[in-house]
């Protein structure tokens, strides 16, 4: 017996929410990858920075998380994420790239950066906990979501996260295709030496893209905090799946990252509901299913899902 209500509640709504979260997080990581070529391990920490910026903003302003208030804090989350991302590019990656560090070295440096950001966040939280008596860990932003009568909180989150994702995509599309900066940026991505020869300050372009990366990921942190308990490891614990989304998305354009996010989100929820449960496997194996799907996909379609799409377009 097919129950529409159950299907909507157990499959569609969670799938949309997860997909949007992973899509938002993937946009930033894809941009990191196509500009500075760093598979950054510190990417998840930008989301945690966004989440904690929101938390502190709301607590200093309202003393707690009120319904709808996270949207007031969203610009703050974006700013904080952008600031940290910018600093990590200017302070760590740019000097290292200048010294000719290879991709693997940059990657391990980003691993160090993860510990640095994590440690600083955790120190701040411990201080805030003792000084103000706030419980700075394991809270949830779900109470900060707007309340729409007649809709459950996860339904509202499905709608708002979709709206935010679309707005961000539209803004990025406009920025990349309709502004002079967009032209410069695409040129720097496509062919950095040529862009440099034409007098474009490629490093400045990269610095600005890191601002965008941080801002988008900071916002992703707020939505992560609605589903997962917020700790300093909010983004770090989800990093393997963000990487999966980015790689499956094809590493070529930010829209690929969004597709990857959607593939990860839906394959998790569908695989969980229609593979694990019917086969009567114990629920403990929940994580194994999305992983198995990704493994199978990669083995059957070695170029990734985006590769399939690209191949179809070519024919």
């Amino acid at each position: 017996m097919f129950n529409m209500y159950d299907f909507l509640n157990n499959v569609v709504i969670p799938a949309i929410v997860y997909s949007n979260i992973y899509a938002l997080a993937s946009i930033g990581l894809t941009m990191t990858y196509i500009t500075t070529k760093i598979p950054s391990f510190a990417h998840g920490d930008l989301a945690a920075v966004g989440a904690y910026a929101t938390f502190y903003f709301l607590y200093f302003l309202f003393g707690g998380i009120k319904p709808g208030s996270v949207y007031l804090a969203m610009p703050i989350a974006a700013l904080a994420g952008a600031a940290v991302a910018y600093l990590s590019y200017i302070g760590v990656f740019k000097p290292m790239i200048r010294r000719g560090a290879s991709v693997t070295v940059l990657m391990i440096a980003s691993f160090g950066l993860h510990f640095l950001i994590f440690g600083i966040l955790a120190i701040l939280d411990s201080i805030a906990q003792t000084v103000y008596g706030w419980s700075t860990r394991n809270y949830s932003f779900s109470t900060g979501e707007v309340q729409i009568p007649g809709l459950t909180q996860s339904e509202v989150t499905a709608i708002t996260s979709s709206v935010v994702l679309l707005l961000i995509l539209a803004a990025l599309y406009y920025l990349l295709n309709r502004t002079k900066f967009g032209v410069v940026m695409r040129a720097s991505i496509d062919n950095a030496p040529l862009a440099r020869a034409l007098g474009i300050d490629v490093e400045r372009v990269y610095a600005i893209s890191w601002l965008i990366i941080g801002a988008v990921t900071g916002i992703a942190g707020i939505y992560m905090g609605m589903i997962f308990p917020v700790t300093e490891e909010l983004g770090w614990l989800r990093l393997p799946l963000i990487f999966v989304a980015v790689i499956v998305g094809g590493l070529s354009s930010i829209y690929g990252g969004v597709i990857g996010g959607y593939i990860v989100g839906w394959s998790m929820v569908l695989g969980f509901n229609y593979i694990l449960n019917p086969l009567n496997l114990p629920p403990e194996y929940q994580l194994a299913i999305p992983f198995a799907i990704v493994i199978a996909t990669l083995l059957l379609a070695p170029q990734g899902i985006a590769g399939l799409i690209a191949a179809r377009r070519r024919t």
Binding site: Y18, I227, P229, F272, L276, N277, P282, E284, Q286, L287
Partner: peptide
């Protein structure tokens, strides 16, 4: 008796599945 993976993993739907079972 139905278990769920308690690690703060990718998807907190395991509790829900265990409850359904």
């Amino acid at each position: 008796a139905f278990g769920y993976d308690p690690s703060p993993s990718a998807m907190p739907a395991a509790e829900q599945a265990a409850v359904q079972k």
